[in-house]
């Protein structure tokens, strides 16, 4: 069987009135590939992520997703029911602020188990066991299974959010500044965890970050955005070691150490 792209993006454009959100973005994402989208605040990277993940409707262009049945589905043409089903089974979305991706007033176990219940799992014991297993995998002690995320540290919440997303075995995970609000030491642990999970599960991921060190560690390939346009893209090593565009050179030279 020949391998085909998981996502085919063509000419994706989002206008906010006359203002450009992102313009004419095209790329393929392959199974197992991690793509980093980097750029400053306001460069359009979060707009792009929102359009890709159907959280925002694009003005023009197309995003085709390789469904589990082998056919490509144009995301804007899926029904809302199909889109939402995709989002809670085959996709994950990790928010910068864990509170946006978690239910803060229900237990860690229910947070992790929710997606299973949403797709029809009806055995409490099994759901709890799966949740407990995933808590261990993201390095949260299963003894905390009945605690609410409110009682968790920022790093734990972020790991909980990741477990909540991965329990249904998604093929594509979107991450918006996943290490944004975390201390440096906590960041390192999270990055290492994400890196391991992506590798072990063969996940594809699109990671939005302004942190080039995060991009270097997690991604195979990266796109640099400025003013809504992708100005440079390629192998992560190459973009960071041999940046071509003035803006990319500025970005790379502005970091303390990659």
């Amino acid at each position: 069987m020949t391998i085909e792209p998981l996502l085919k993006v063509n000419g994706l454009t989002k206008m906010y009135g006359a203002r450009i959100g992102c313009a004419d973005v095209s790329f393929d994402l392959w199974p197992g590939e991690v793509l980093a989208i980097v750029g400053e605040s306001g460069s359009g990277k979060t707009t792009l992520l929102s359009c890709l993940s159907t959280r925002l409707e694009a003005t023009s262009g197309s995003v085709e997703y390789h469904m589990r049945d082998g056919a490509y589905g144009e995301l804007s043409r899926l029904t809302e029911a199909e889109r939402r089903f995709l989002m809670r089974t085959d996709w994950g979305f990790v928010h910068q602020n864990p509170a946006d991706g978690l239910r803060m007033t229900v237990s860690a176990g229910a947070n992790v188990g929710e997606r299973l219940m949403a797709i029809g799992h009806r055995h409490y014991g099994e759901i709890r066991e799966a949740a407990s297993d995933w808590l261990s995998r993201v390095e949260i002690s299963p003894s905390r299974i009945d605690d609410q995320p409110r009682a968790f540290s920022g790093g734990m919440r972020q790991r909980l959010q990741i477990a909540r997303n991965l329990i249904t075995g998604p093929r594509l995970v979107f991450m918006d500044e996943p290490t944004g609000g975390l201390d440096v030491s906590v960041q390192a642990r999270l990055l290492d965890l994400v890196r391991g999970l992506v590798h072990d599960l063969g996940l594809s991921a699109i990671v939005v970050t302004h942190d080039l060190a995060v991009a270097r560690l997690l991604s195979h390939r990266m796109m640099v955005m400025k003013d809504g346009h992708v100005i440079e893209q390629g192998l992560t090593d190459r973009v960071l070691d041999d940046p071509r565009e003035p803006y990319t050179q500025l970005l790379v030279s502005s970091i303390l150490q990659v």
Partner: peptide, 22 residues
């Protein structure tokens, strides 16, 4: 409303799950 429209009722079981967990 959207959840009713699309029969997305996983949340109801989250509530019952919480009950059993507690």
């Amino acid at each position: 409303r959207k959840m009713h429209a699309l029969s997305e009722y996983g949340l109801m079981h989250v509530k019952l799950y919480e009950d059993i967990a507690r």
